[in-house]
Design a protein around this nucleic acid. Structure first.
Length: 348
DNA sequence: AACTCGGGGAA
DNA sequence: TTCCCAGAGTT
């Protein structure tokens, strides 16, 4: 029996029941694929359900505000996915008459749709024989065929795409693609796969050579940048506060946060007070207190944010202050939403 | 080719 | 802690 046939057989017996498995609607498949980029199924599934409920079709998504899209995306990370999702919805509505392109090559032109996602949509919705190559597929192929080329090298990316094309089998590409990913996620898991019961164990090169724990090979370790954040949580006599929207490049683009003082070294109370006096032009009729005793370390994959929240009780009314109830309507990073939640429970 | 972009779950 | 997740865009 061929490699692809064994995958198909395994899939038919072991596939999870997932909400996007029962449709060929390109909108829904596209949405699910964007959500699942670098994201576990269990984490993405509730977001998929929320998005379908709020935006049943691409027109609804295109007509929404970016604020609303980002708010629904809040907590999922990689927020450029949400911005590109929204932008692509508008393009599909305005330039494609509301219909998604139906081929790999055309899908590839959409924002946020790369090789993997174009292959996924083309195969699942339109039966086009394009193999998906995601993290699961890299692992399955590297192990089963004993490939030691780094999966994140230019050479590796080309090699595995070619290998995936050779072994895919073209008759049921829709189930095969989902099957090999599911197989990688459940059977050929990253750590401690249970090879004894694997339907492909007789032909697995990594198992034969005792390389299951070694493959796939990945090079480059991301170095972590350390940053010091001081968030200024204003509270005026009406308990209103201030949020700013992050613009430009960097993390959390277009999300909201409290006014931020970023510094080379962590600031103490005296230094924060000095900065504040300049901001309010000499007026020092405010109370300043540190909310968190020890620093909060918010860890992103390539940045560690050493964070302190400062509460500033001011006697001056803020002009465009935001009430604490309204804070929840803004899309904010998890670091901020965690604080808001704790703050509301503890401070009043 | 290397870097940037989140957050969370599992071992 | 470390690894990695149905990757893509930018430099």
């Amino acid at each position: 029996m061929s490699f692809s046939q064994k995958i198909l057989n395994w899939y038919s017996e072991n596939k999870r029941s997932l909400p996007w498995r029962s449709t060929r609607d390109p909108y829904k498949i596209w949405l699910s694929e964007i959500i699942l980029q670098q994201t576990r199924v269990v984490q993405g599934e509730p977001y998929y359900l929320k998005f379908i409920e709020n935006f049943p079709n691409v027109q609804d998504l295109a007509n929404a505000s970016e604020e609303r899209v980002l708010k629904l995306w809040q907590g999922l990370g990689y927020y450029s996915r949400a911005r590109n999702l929204h932008a692509t919805a508008k393009i599909v509505v305005n330039e494609y008459d509301g219909r998604f392109p139906n081929s790999y090559n055309e899908l590839l032109k959409l924002k946020g749709v790369g090789d993997y996602t174009a292959s996924a949509i083309a195969s699942i919705c339109f039966d086009e024989p394009q193999p998906v190559v995601d993290g699961n597929v890299y692992r399955v192929l590297a192990r089963h065929f004993g490939v030691a080329i780094p999966i994140n090298s230019t050479k590796g990316i080309k090699y595995f795409k070619r290998l995936a094309t050779e072994v895919m089998g073209r008759k049921n590409i829709r189930d095969y693609n989902q099957g090999i990913m599911e197989f990688g996620a459940i059977q050929c898991a990253p750590k401690k796969p249970y090879c004894l019961l694997c339907p492909l164990n007789e032909s697995c090169v990594a198992l034969e050579k005792n390389l299951v724990q070694t493959l796939p090979i990945k090079e480059n370790k991301t170095k972590v940048r350390k940053r010091n954040f001081n968030y200024l949580v204003w509270l005026d006599p009406n308990n209103k506060t201030i949020l700013n929207q992050r613009r430009g490049k960097g993390i959390w683009q277009n999300l909201w946060e409290f006014p931020l003082l970023e510094s080379e070294n962590q600031l103490n109370e005296k230094e924060v007070r000095k900065e504040l006096k300049e901001m309010v032009s000499g007026d020092d009729s405010f109370r300043l207190l540190s909310y968190n005793e020890s620093l909060i370390v918010h860890k992103l994959s390539h940045q560690h944010l050493y964070t302190r929240f400062w509460i500033i009780e001011s006697n001056v009314e803020l002009e465009n202050g935001i009430s604490l109830e309204d804070l929840d309507s803004y899309p904010v990073p998890v670091l901020i939403s965690d604080f808001i939640k704790a703050f509301k429970n503890s401070y009043f």
